[in-house]
Design a protein around this nucleic acid. Sequence first.
RNA 1: GGACCCGUAGUGUAAUGGAUUAUCAUAUGGGUUUCCGGAGCCCAUGAUCCGGGUUCGAAUCCCGGCGGGUCUGCCA
Length: 548
Amino acid sequence: MLMYQDVHEKLVSAIRNQIPVFRSEDLSFDKTGHCDMTVKMFRYSANNIEPLRLLISKEKFVTNAEVEGNYINLTIDPLQLLSIMINSISSTGQYPDTFQDPERVCVEHTSINPTGPIHVGRVRNSILGDSVARMLKRYGYRVTTQYFINDSGKQMMSLYLAYEKYSSGLPLTPQLLLDGYKRIYKEMEEEGSESEVEEIIKKYESGDPTIINKVREIAMVMLDDIKKDLDKLGIKIDDFTWESDFIITGEVRTLIDSISDVTQMDGQARFIELENGRKVYLTRSDGSSLYLVRDLAYHMYKLSQNDWLITVLGEDHSEHGKTLSEILTKYFDLVKKLDFVLYAFVSLETGSMSTRKGNAVTVKELVEKTYERALEVIKEKRGESTISNEIAKKIAISAIRFNILKVNSSKAMIFKWKDALDFNGDSAPFVMYSYVRALNILNKSAIKYELEPGEVSANNLKKEESALILDLYQYPFVISESVKNLKPEMLANFAFMLSKAFNDFYENCKVNSEEYETSVRRLMIVNVYKNIIEDVSSIIGIQLVSEM
RNA sequence: GGACCCGUAGUGUAAUGGAUUAUCAUAUGGGUUUCCGGAGCCCAUGAUCCGGGUUCGAAUCCCGGCGGGUCUGCCA
């Protein structure tokens, strides 16, 4: 959990002295420009309003409380908020502080079939998953990330078969495998037969070591390529689990047997009937297992070592997620938390992306093009570039992650190069640039200033300062909301909003070359801003630079 | 046909039942630089899919349409 002085909570408990049933959500930070915080009194007797105003106006952080209709509008002392943040940062290095929670969370993301490179349609999964994991870690959970390697399905067997048929013996490369993959799907479509693949699946499930080893070797080649792509985006996954392990160890069989009394047979195939009457199959007629069982076995494994499972899934798998939940709850006495973060598809203006069709925009291409664009923009802004390629790379990665993350994940989106390469406005470079400004101010300051708690002067305090402080103060609330809803995009929006507020501050409030007290206070604000931007950036995957 | 998700300016978003004038960005038009770095700042234009209902109050909740995405495999 997060540790910080919670003004909101303090005020709520003060209010409850007078109105015991007061709802926490009726006190909120103002969003309309009337004040700093507001108490909504619609639900409570009007007789309460004036006495409550009096009571609140005596509270520590409140400098003014006024009644406007059914609202009690509060002005909060920004200097006290600033002190809270400064104290936290000087004693713990961060605001808010994190208290380590014993709860273990497993975030599974990406988990794409190792049959091709990551493309832009699926990269939303990795970006969401990575940010969710970082956000939960920041909140205080013990987090591990997981990748489930689907090396035993039909797709994987087709990839294997294609290699054996067309290129057997040739050195394994991603490109060679991919070409074969596309070719064999085309053939199967033309012939209308999948019997060859089915034959392989049977052999594989019966434990044929030659096939299992070769398939894993092939998967490894593809997986390495996928890992490289993830690495390009600054994403590292802790644990990789092979789907085939659950077949080899017999856990899949054990699992099927353990629920045999609730499953039914359709010929030789085994299925289970869900509450809505839908039949989902666990095994084929030939006895081989289907993905659902293998994923169930995988979930049992994850449950054995975690308290909370989160899986990032494309919306095409939402039904699968529900099926897993239902079966685990009903037949395996699941009491632990199980959540799915769903995202809608990313498509191209020409339609959907597909590895098999070969029309996908890959992560490699995206990173490459964005990097070139970053170099171009730097040249435009600074004349002949004096900036290292390292910086252009960081700008590119940050821009990509921010652009994809900021869009509400449940809305389908169309990928457009023009938007992806736009560094104006609501984008990572905007945040990064405001951070550079903050660093410059701090570097240019002649005042040897330490982050020491103490008296903060109100000398020449401007409204842009107060506004920025109030925004900064709300950081822990945003993390909490973001965690509660599993929506890291809230943090991306916050980072942008903060940078905007900082730009306002920058335009209107000189930091250096002011009176000493004013300078010190503004330096504190800039320091807090720097600290929080670094913090939030590390969650949402912005890689900050000191010049750009 | 049935199920799930999503509909806010041209585009992307904010508002998790509350305020006059629905936020911010982008795009478009205009302005702005001897300044702690202009990737900035200021002004203008432009939106809650439609119809009912609940409520003192609805972009938000409920019902019915409409539009888009997804599922409806002994694929994963």
